[in-house]
């Protein structure tokens, strides 16, 4: 902190002082006070002003010089606040406290991003292992040409396709951007698309698919809802018992429409039920079956939240699992019609 800069900053104060002392001198001489007294008053004033300026300069200089020097030397400038002691003057205190607050909030933000990035990295790593499974199994099938069968290859391709879709929707669910389009969509159309995607495996595993009352319009994004239903049905297909059945039905209620996806599979233990929508939660079922990243329902829930739907799950171990998606009706739209 240069003294010239300091004085320049105080220029108004100094000018006011000079004017004041001139006015006082003039007034005193008008009242015929003798010159020695006038000089005495001026000298006293001058000394106090100088003492004040020196004192003020020294304490500010002590803080700001250290501040600037440290800032210059530091590699990570945001650590500056850690190297300083709290100043004793008011504007310095404001600066110090503000820096502290700004730093704190930025640290929180950085932490949030770091956590997000880490969980994304974890997911991608897990995901890469996941996609390598169908890849290597196709590779093996191609190598053992005798055992090469089209249904087997297409089942693996379907797995690969599902994995790729999942990472796409994971990114979309984490993204703050609004890249979906909500419009009136017929549930039948979405369900038959998902059913056809899973047709081969449903037929192969002899799973009965019953669809009832789904000729109904809901407000949603067709692609996103298709993904969500596919995740739920994939789980139903994964965790089957004897005589597997998947029932899809809808209920039209006063202010909402319920879409229920029921299966008579192995169900979910009661203790796991509250956690199935958590990130990377695999539960005891997931550990029984290797291909479980624990992300499907998490992403489904996030997408539902973005679309304004609600998703709930009900299950009894060794009996059934039922996932319900709730679409709220939009009164405004009905009036507009």
């Amino acid at each position: 902190m240069k003294i010239s800069h300091y004085l320049k900053d105080k220029i108004v104060f100094i000018l006011l002082y000079i004017i004041t002392s001139l006015i006082i001198s003039a007034m005193l001489s008008v009242f015929k006070v003798n010159n020695e007294a006038i000089i005495g008053v001026n000298v006293t004033l001058f000394i106090f002003i100088i003492i004040y300026l020196i004192y003020d300069y020294l304490r500010k200089n002590k803080f700001y010089s250290k501040f600037l020097a440290n800032l210059d030397h530091l590699d990570q400038k945001y650590l500056i606040i850690e190297t300083l002691t709290k100043p004793t003057f008011y504007d310095g205190e404001i600066l110090y406290d503000s820096l502290y607050e700004i730093n704190k909030s930025m640290n929180e933000k950085v932490k949030e991003y770091r956590l997000n990035l880490n969980s994304f990295k974890d997911y991608i790593e897990m995901w890469i292992h996941e996609v390598k499974l169908p890849l290597s199994s196709i590779n093996l099938m191609l190598h053992n040409k005798e055992t090469l069968s089209i249904p087997k290859v297409s089942a693996q391709l379907k797995r690969l396709d599902d994995d790729v879709e999942q990472v796409l929707y994971y990114v979309r669910s984490e993204n703050a951007e609004k890249d979906y389009l909500i419009k009136e969509t017929n549930l039948n159309k979405i369900i038959s698309n998902v059913a056809i995607q899973n047709k081969d495996i449903l037929l192969e595993k002899n799973i009965e698919l019953e669809v009832q009352n789904t000729n109904i319009d809901v407000l949603t994004d067709a692609k996103w809802l298709g993904f969500i239903i596919n995740q739920i049905i994939s789980n139903s297909i994964k965790y089957t018992r004897d005589n597997p059945v998947i029932k899809i039905s809808s209920q039209d209620q006063k202010d909402k429409i319920l879409l229920k996806i029921y299966d008579n599979g192995i169900g979910i233990p009661k203790r796991d039920l509250p956690k199935v929508f958590d990130k990377t939660f695999t539960g005891s079922n997931g550990r029984k079956i290797t291909t479980s990243t624990g992300m499907g329902l998490y992403i489904a829930k996030k997408l539902c939240q973005k679309l304004g739907h609600q998703i709930t799950i009900n299950s009894k171990e060794n009996e059934f699992t039922e996932v319900t998606i709730i679409f709220y009706k939009n009164d405004f739209l009905n009036i507009a019609k």
């Binding site: 038959s192 059913a195 056809i196 037929l203 002899n206 009965e208």
Partner: peptide
């Protein structure tokens, strides 16, 4: 045939 049936919401088996 199966795909066409499924496409018309008739989810029948083999």
């Amino acid at each position: 045939l199966m795909t066409d049936l499924w496409n018309n919401n008739e989810f029948i088996n083999d």
